[in-house]
Amino acid sequence: MRMDGLVCKRLVKEEISYTNEAKAQEEKVQRMEAQAEDFYVLRKQKEVLQESKMMVPDCHRRLAKAHADLLQLLETEEDLAESEEYKEARNVLDSVELEG
Rank of each mutant, 00 (worst) to 15 (best):
31 R>W: 14
1 M>W: 05
53 K>E: 07
74 L>T: 06
22 A>D: 04
46 K>D: 01
38 D>C: 13
19 T>D: 15
52 S>K: 10
94 D>E: 13
84 E>I: 11
47 E>V: 08
72 Q>Y: 11
59 C>D: 03
21 E>P: 02
98 L>V: 02
76 T>G: 02
4 D>W: 00
77 E>Q: 09
73 L>M: 06
59 C>Q: 08
35 Q>M: 12
83 S>D: 09
45 Q>G: 03
28 K>F: 14
43 R>N: 08
97 E>G: 14
17 S>P: 07
44 K>R: 15
41 V>S: 12
13 K>V: 08
24 A>E: 07
59 C>A: 14
33 E>C: 09
69 D>F: 00
27 E>W: 09
17 S>K: 11
65 K>W: 04
72 Q>G: 10
75 E>R: 05
14 E>H: 11
43 R>V: 03
67 H>D: 02
31 R>P: 12
94 D>Y: 06
49 L>G: 01
74 L>W: 08
86 Y>H: 10
74 L>N: 05
16 I>E: 14
30 Q>E: 08
66 A>T: 00
3 M>S: 07
82 E>Q: 15
50 Q>A: 13
92 V>G: 00
63 L>P: 03
1 M>D: 07
100 G>I: 07
2 R>L: 06
1 M>Q: 11
75 E>N: 07
55 M>C: 06
17 S>L: 12
97 E>C: 12
38 D>M: 10
29 V>D: 03
67 H>G: 01
13 K>C: 06
4 D>F: 00
91 N>M: 11
11 L>T: 01
13 K>Q: 07
60 H>I: 00
26 E>R: 03
67 H>V: 00
59 C>I: 07
6 L>T: 08
85 E>I: 09
95 S>D: 13
66 A>K: 00
90 R>K: 14
98 L>H: 02
85 E>R: 07
20 N>S: 15
45 Q>V: 09
12 V>R: 06
98 L>Y: 01
57 P>F: 06
26 E>G: 08
60 H>E: 04
60 H>V: 00
7 V>I: 06
3 M>V: 06
86 Y>V: 01
35 Q>S: 11
84 E>N: 14
99 E>Y: 12
50 Q>E: 13
44 K>V: 13
99 E>N: 13
20 N>K: 15
15 E>C: 14
78 E>F: 14
43 R>L: 05
62 R>N: 11
60 H>K: 06
73 L>P: 00
20 N>W: 12
19 T>R: 15
76 T>P: 02
